[in-house]
């Protein structure tokens, strides 16, 4: 672009760089500070951003090993972080797989089949999803207590119940997959049907293999969405060994038992992989953002 540049241009560029770096410093400060704190000895130490003395005690505790202090006192890990991480991954993986399979079939129905009230159903699903789940927590709690009376492994305090509760959040994913299916020409399935395939075979053997990339994307999105979910998990899970990471992490920072250093190590340990997955999936997430989804 041939824009006439004035004399002030150079100064404005310098000012922009300086301003951006100041903002980046403010933005990154909490993230760098938490890494630094995880390496500092003790739970109450303050100090410079680059720790003067590096101690791996918090990391040992976060990874589940006991730590022996200089005075010989053995400190046991305060919380089962790895168990919580495993709970989170287990719940997120199973519910994401279910979400993907449910929303794929529904998306196929919406994209390819003709039936009445199609637009109405699609729109009302999207509207329903706008209601924040945090508002219906009382009802969700009551529902799962009632379910638990009949089917114990789906009640309160079970991972089965939590997984089932997460399945409700499929509307956005149905839209995403439906949009992808609509870019695939119908002729391909029609050819398969001419060759004698049933509708299910056309879906399962022809359309589905072509949609694998979008299914991976939806899986990653659902996975991130469920692994960071806090409100429902905080209502359904209360016992320490059952907690997911999102619910358990807050117990580090109780006024009476303030474990700042231990928290920092646990936060980096569990936050880093999720952040990396998120950054890797950023491209698709960003394209989904403009359609109105806000991350929790």
């Amino acid at each position: 672009m041939a824009v006439v540049t004035g004399k002030s241009q150079r100064w404005r560029i310098v000012a922009a760089h300086v301003g951006l770096w100041v903002l980046i410093a403010i933005t990154l400060f909490p993230l760098l500070a938490v890494v630094s704190i995880s390496l500092r000895p003790g739970n109450f130490a303050t100090g410079s951003l680059i720790p003067a003395e590096i101690s791996l005690e918090h990391w040992k505790l976060a990874l589940g090993f006991a730590h022996t202090q200089a005075d010989g006192v053995v400190v046991q890990p305060p919380f089962p972080v790895l168990l919580w991480l495993w709970n989170s991954i287990k719940v997120a993986t199973i519910s994401s797989l279910l979400i993907v399979s449910i929303s794929t079939t529904a998306a196929y129905g919406f994209a390819r089949l003709r039936f009445r009230f199609k637009t109405t159903i699609l729109n009302s699903m999207l509207l329903l999803q706008m209601f924040p789940v945090a508002v219906a927590l009382v009802a969700i709690y009551a529902i799962f207590e009632a379910i638990g009376g009949v089917i114990p492994w789906l009640g309160i305090e079970t991972h089965g119940g939590l997984i089932v509760a997460y399945i409700g959040g499929v509307a956005m994913h149905i839209w995403t997959i439906k949009g992808y299916f609509e870019t695939i020409p119908t002729e391909i399935e029609e050819c398969a049907k001419v060759d004698g395939a049933t509708s299910w075979q056309a879906f399962y053997k022809v359309l589905l293999p072509m949609a694998v990339p979008i299914l991976m994307v939806v899986f990653v999105l659902a996975f991130i969405g469920t692994i960071i979910e806090y409100p429902i998990a905080s209502v359904l899970l209360r016992e320490e060994p059952n907690l997911t990471l999102a619910v358990g992490s807050k117990y580090y920072l109780y006024e009476q038992r303030y474990l700042w250093g231990d928290f920092a190590a646990a936060a980096v340990l569990s936050g880093l992989p999720i952040t990396l997955v998120f950054l890797a999936a950023q491209r698709w997430i960003v394209s989904g953002l403009t359609s109105g989804g806000v991350k929790g």
Binding site: L20, I24, I228, A246, S249, Y252, F278, L279, K295, G296
Partner: peptide
């Protein structure tokens, strides 16, 4: 770099 706050899980950055 400026996108990072969005990528870090909310429950972790809030507790930080």
């Amino acid at each position: 770099l400026l996108f990072l706050p969005y990528a870090v899980p909310g429950f972790i950055s809030i507790l930080v």
